[in-house]
Simulated assay, not measured.
Amino acid sequence: MYNFENLQTSSENKRYYIPMEVTAETIKDFCINPADVVWTRIGNSKVRVIMIQATKEQYYEYMRPLWKEDKRLQRQESMASLDKLYEETEYETVDTADLEADVMKKVMIDELHKALDELEEIDRTIMEMYSNDHSESEIGQVIGMSQKGVNKRKHRVLLKLKTRLKDFE
């Protein structure tokens, strides 16, 4: 039998922290204990911070704009359509022929085609719609999945393709 009272108590006692970036000068000037300084990621860069305890409301008020900006940047990353991906990776002729590189490129393209063909139908739908500039929310509505679920599946597929084609880098 599960005790739900303990579950509520533990979530009520949860502590929230906001990262405050520090430099060597601020550590020295404000007599911050160097042991309290940790490395964390804010946005796309790793920085030294101290963690300031905050209320749940303060934490969400501080973090929501960061999460929103991060999501906006993710959505701006252009994803090539599968058709475009096929077109751009097809065999190309060049002035300086490098037969070995051309053969390796052809083998890589064939492997990419196989990998894309082996995807589950839902993953192909996600990738096709995303490559045609549909938002994750729109994709989720079409396939009956949450936006977060679409995001996770999309990243899993991209990782699978990258891993499969790693030998061709």
Rank of each mutant, 00 (worst) to 15 (best):
V22L: 03
W39H: 11
A24N: 12
Y17L: 00
Q53C: 04
Q58E: 06
I18E: 06
V47C: 09
V49P: 05
P34K: 08
T26C: 01
R48A: 15
A54N: 02
A54W: 15
I18T: 08
E25D: 13
P19N: 11
V22W: 03
V49E: 14
Q8E: 04
R48K: 13
N13A: 09
S10N: 02
I50N: 01
K28Y: 07
A35E: 08
K56M: 03
T23Y: 15
T55S: 12
K56G: 00
K46Q: 07
Q58M: 07
D36W: 04
M51Q: 11
A24E: 12
Q8D: 07
A35M: 09
R41G: 07
E12D: 14
A54F: 02
V49A: 08
V47A: 12
V38E: 13
I42L: 12
E21H: 14
Q53E: 15
V49W: 08
I18S: 07
S45I: 11
Q53H: 05
V38L: 10
V49Y: 04
A54V: 05
P34C: 15
M51F: 06
K14Y: 03
N13G: 08
S10H: 04
I50C: 00
S45R: 08
Y16A: 00
T9I: 07
M51P: 02
T40K: 07
T26G: 04
V37R: 09
I32V: 13
Y17K: 00
T9R: 05
N44H: 09
G43M: 02
V49I: 07
R48S: 15
V22A: 04
I32K: 09
T55A: 03
E25F: 12
R48G: 14
P34S: 15
E12C: 13
V49H: 07
S45Y: 08
N33S: 04
P34F: 13
S10I: 05
R15P: 01
P19Q: 08
